[in-house]
Design a protein around this nucleic acid. Structure first.
Length: 436
RNA sequence: GUGGCUGUAGUUCAGUCGGCUAGAAUGCCAGAUUGUGGCUCUGGAGGUCGUGGGUUCAAGUCCCAUCAGCCACCCCA
C-alpha cells in the first residue's frame, strides 16, 4: 500500500509552490511599505508558551495542539513519567505567541524605542478534523506590532491588510471587514459578568456547550451557530455599553481612521476572537459565497497584556494573520489566473542519436550563459522533442542536425514567430539569449 | 472529537435487475508529415474496480470490516 501525506496535510506542487512564493513576496512588498520586517521563529515552542499566551481554556490549546516528543522522552511519557516544562514542546498553532516571545527574549522593544514591526509567513499546525479551508498543517502570513498602544497602529494594520488582499487579487466587493472592541482589563470583567448573568437567566434556551461556556468564557457564546443560542445572545448585553472611557476613545479613533482611509467596515458586537490574549480592537475579514463554513480569510486584534503574560515587561501589541489556503480558495472561485512554473526557456533538440553528445554539451553552454535549457533524455523522435519543448514552455528550440553541424552551425527556431535561422554553433548561446 | 457522503485507466466520470472480453472523454505514445510544436485524422498502450473477507453458479454491482478522500458540526486564518 502506497503511503500518502498525513491526514490534513498536502503537498505544494511546483505551480502552487510558485504561487505561495509570489504570495509571500507580495506580503513582503506591501507590509514592507508600512515598515514591517520579516522574522522567522521556530515551528515548535515550549508548550507552556502557548498555554500561558493563548489561554489554557481555548479550543486551540486544550484540544488542537500537536505535542512534540523527542525519541527518549516519548518512552518516558509512555511509562507515565511527567516531563519538566522545558521538555514539553508543541508545534505552533498560530504565530503571535512565538513572535512576542522572540521580542521579549531579544528585547526588540527596549525603553524609548520605536515600535517593533514584524511579519512572518509559514506553516501552523492544529490537530483538527480536516475539511474545506482547514488543514492540519496550513500556511499563514501575519504581522505583529509591539510597543505602541495608539489606535493609529490598529487602523494602519487593518488598512494594510485590505491593501494586501486587493493586491493579490481578491475582489474587494466579496470581502466584509467586521470590527469590534473587546474592552480591556478594566472594563471587560464587568461585561463578562453581565453576559454570564444574562445567560444564567436564559440557561434553558442554551445548548450544552454554551452552558459550559457560561462559566469558562461566556463571550464565546456569541460565536455559537446554534440558532436558538444566537436568538438568545441577540438580546444579550452589548460590549459597547460597558467599555471604559479609554476603550471607547480608542475604538472611536480606530473607526475614524478607517473611515478617513475610505475603508468600509461593519460593526459586529458578536465578534469575539477565540484566543484569550485579545483586548480592545478585534477584527475579521470574511468572504461571501463560496465555502461558507470557513469564510474568515484574515483576522486579528490588539493584545496589550500578552507580553506580560509570558514574562516580559508590559508591552502593548497588535497583530493579524491571514490564511493562505483560504485565499487560494477564494481566488479559485473568482477565476483567478494562477501562474505556471516553467523550468525551460530553450530546448536543445537533436535530429538523430549521432548528435546527442553535442546536444548535451550545448545545453550545458546555454545554462552557463544563464538560460534555462533542457534537452531530450528519452531518445524521442524529433517531432516528439518539439512537442515536449512546446509543453515545457520553451520559447526557443535549438536544432542540432548532421547537415548544419558539418558546417559548424546550428539551427535556431523561435517557437512564437516560427522563424528559423542558421548560426555558427559558437554564437548559439548569444542568439538564443537575444530571442528570450 | 461527533456525524454524513464518496472510492472504477494518469485525470474527470459512465457501468441498468448481480450475467459474455469493464467503457467514454481527456491525457499519454506512434503514424499520416522518411529533419520541425499547437490544429485535424488514424491507430496503439494503459485497470490488484481503495484493501481484506463474506453471500452467490456468477460480484465493479449485494453484505461486513478496514483504509483513504471529501463535506458538515465544532473551532479558527
Amino acid at each position: 500500500m502506497a503511503i500518502n501525506a498525513p491526514e490534513g496535510t498536502y503537498d505544494l506542487l511546483p505551480d502552487q509552490k510558485l504561487f505561495w512564493e509570489q504570495f509571500k513576496n507580495t506580503a513582503r512588498d506591501v507590509f514592507g511599505r508600512y515598515g514591517y520586517l520579516p522574522i522567522e521563529t521556530p515551528s515548535m515552542e515550549r508548550t507552556d508558551l502557548f498555554v500561558r499566551g493563548i489561554g489554557e481554556a481555548t479550543d486551540v490549546v486544550s484540544k488542537e495542539m500537536f505535542e512534540v516528543l523527542s525519541g527518549g522522552n516519548m518512552a518516558k511519557v509512555l511509562a507515565g513519567e511527567t516531563l519538566p516544562a522545558k521538555k514539553r514542546l508543541s508545534l505552533r498553532p498560530e504565530g503571535t505567541a512565538g513572535v512576542v516571545r522572540a521580542c521579549v527574549q531579544h528585547d526588540l522593544v527596549p525603553q524609548g524605542a520605536p515600535p517593533a514591526k514584524l511579519m512572518y509567513a509559514g506553516p501552523m499546525f492544529r490537530a483538527e478534523r480536516p475539511q474545506q479551508g482547514r488543514q492540519r498543517e496550513f500556511n499563514q502570513v501575519g504581522i505583529e506590532c509591539l510597543g505602541a498602544d495608539d489606535p493609529s497602529i490598529d487602523a494602519e494594520a487593518i488598512i494594510m491588510l485590505m491593501r494586501f488582499f486587493a493586491e493579490v487579487g481578491i475582489p474587494h466587493t466579496s470581502m466584509t471587514l467586521l470590527l469590534n472592541s473587546m474592552g480591556c482589563a478594566t472594563c471587560r470583567p464587568a461585561y463578562r459578568d453581565a453576559v454570564r448573568a444574562y445567560m444564567e437567566q436564559h440557561v434553558d434556551a442554551l445548548c450544552d456547550t454554551c452552558r459550559q461556556r457560561m462559566d469558562l468564557n461566556p463571550l464565546r457564546a456569541f460565536d455559537c451557530k446554534n440558532s436558538e443560542c444566537a436568538a438568545v445572545m441577540e438580546d444579550a448585553p452589548k460590549i459597547g455599553e460597558y467599555l471604559c472611557d479609554e476603550c471607547q476613545a480608542h475604538y472611536a479613533q480606530v473607526r475614524g481612521l478607517l473611515e478617513l482611509a475610505g475603508i468600509q467596515y461593519v460593526e459586529d458586537a458578536r465578534l469575539v476572537r477565540g484566543l484569550d490574549y485579545y483586548t480592545r480592537t478585534v477584527f475579521e475579514v470574511q468572504v461571501a459565497g463560496s465555502g461558507k463554513a470557513q469564510n474568515a480569510i484574515g483576522g486579528g486584534g490588539r493584545y496589550d497584556k500578552l507580553a506580560e503574560e509570558i514574562g516580559g515587561r508590559p508591552t502593548p501589541g497588535f497583530g493579524f494573520a491571514l490564511g493562505f489556503e483560504r485565499c487560494v480558495h477564494v481566488l479559485e472561485d473568482a477565476g483567478h489566473a494562477f501562474p505556471h512554473a516553467h523550468a525551460c526557456q530553450a530546448f536543445v533538440a537533436c535530429v538523430d542519436d549521432e548528435v546527442r553528445t553535442d546536444a548535451f554539451a550545448l545545453a550545458q553552454i546555454l545554462r552557463d550563459a544563464g538560460v534555462a535549457a533542457e534537452t531530450d533524455h528519452q531518445h524521442r523522435s524529433l517531432k516528439s522533442q518539439f512537442k515536449l519543448a512546446d509543453k515545457l514552455g520553451a520559447q526557443v528550440v535549438v536544432i542540432l542536425g548532421p547537415d548544419e553541424l558539418r558546417e559548424g552551425n546550428v539551427r535556431i527556431r523561435d517557437m512564437r514567430s516560427h522563424e528559423e535561422t542558421v548560426v555558427p554553433k559558437d554564437v548559439a548561446a548569444g542568439t538564443v539569449a537575444s530571442l528570450l
